[in-house]
Design a protein around this nucleic acid. Structure first.
Lengths: 202, 202
DNA sequence: AAGGCACGCTACCCGGTGGTAGTCTTTCAA
DNA sequence: TTGAAAGACTACCACCGGGTAGCGTGCCTT
């Protein structure tokens, strides 16, 4: 019970930190700013986080973990490589867009992380690329994809999707569901997936 | 003659600033650091740039201009839409990779620019997207491309290429020429360009 | 040879910000 | 009712770094 309240406070701090770091940048935001937004004072934050950079790491890492989990979950699931890639992109896009601010902060403020936190996250990203490459490789082996360089194509796909954090505006022309679907279609077309291989929608 | 020397000094400052901002981030680099690297002192920098943020703008804007020029030049050139798109991507990729540090700094440190400098650059980026969309539209009209949403596809392509600044390592497995070519191939495949439409290489 | 003028340096200021020490309040148990 | 402990606040520090004023020096001109 007290644990839950502690966790809730922690969550609220992170929430407000994400908002401000996103709008003003990491160094452009002071801990006093965050505290003020929460209606508390700076020492309050220090009872939950050891330092400003720990706060940064705490809002970056879980989001990268989610990205990895999305792709990994789909890759290890059932269905043809085409179906699994489709699902992987839809899920991954959803993570990127629903945690847009966290993603933006991570890529912008990477240099402010400690070496340990950075290494940690880089390991996750490496695994992300590996899982995606592997999935593409399976599709090639199954004769569903036409890809000459699976590693490069993984990077291209990852970039295409990740990049959405720079231009997506919630409430824009396309909703989250449509966007994910279109991104998946673009991806499948890029890897030369055949329609016959089992995509459900046209 | 004195003009040339002035310009050279300015260039050297920018060069060193790019290197350090890239490695340590904008706020992680002090003007004293830059001066030290050049073997001069801080006031020297102030005789060439009004402030630290002006220095930042001076190393961001021209690079974005080059990106736009690359795509625009190819789009307005001769050849079929397929040929022009191919060339646009090759040239654009070359800009991104050859000015990798500048691109990285721009995307990471955007928040540190003044509103004026930012608006300025955003106008260029908007035009970039417009030019690319227009080229895609021409390809669709000519029956060479199969694209349902040219605006979204432009963003996807732009992201796929821009993203290369995050993973490219000079001296890596693929050279600059190979990378540009492969990126162009991936792009053409994504827009459903037919081989028959006039790509020179297989 | 002498004067003046670029040009860059030394030395400094000062505001802002991460981080902390010690106090006050509030709540809960005895 | 009282005491103690948890938790948050007030007040503060110390450093860092962007920016500037004014001095010295060497080169170029006359």
């Amino acid at each position: 019970m007290r644990e839950e309240i502690l966790a809730y406070k922690r969550e609220r701090i992170l929430e407000e930190a994400v908002k401000l770091f996103y709008e003003r940048g990491f160094t452009g935001t002071t801990l006093d700013d965050i505290a003020a937004e929460l209606g508390v004072t700076k020492p309050f934050i220090y009872t939950h986080f050891r330092s400003k950079v720990e706060l940064l790491a705490a809002l970056c890492r879980p989001t990268i973990e989610l990205s990895l989990a999305a792709v990994q979950g789909a890759a290890e699931g059932a269905g043809s490589p085409t179906e699994r890639l489709h699902r992987a992109i839809v899920d991954f896009t959803n993570v990127i867009l629903s945690r847009q601010a966290n993603i933006a902060i991570y890529f912008r403020e990477e240099k402010n992380l400690t070496k340990e936190a950075l290494d940690d996250i880089n390991a996750l990203r490496k695994q992300f690329d590996r899982v995606l490459s592997q999935l593409l490789q399976e599709g090639v082996a199954a004769g569903e994809f036409l890809v000459t360089d699976v590693d490069l194509t993984s990077l291209a796909i990852g970039g295409m999707i990740s990049w959405a954090y720079t231009w997506h505006r919630p409430g824009g022309r396309l909703g989250l569901v449509d966007l994910s679907e279109r991104m998946a279609e673009l991806t499948l077309q890029m890897v030369g997936a055949h329609r016959a291989a089992g995509v459900k929608a046209a």
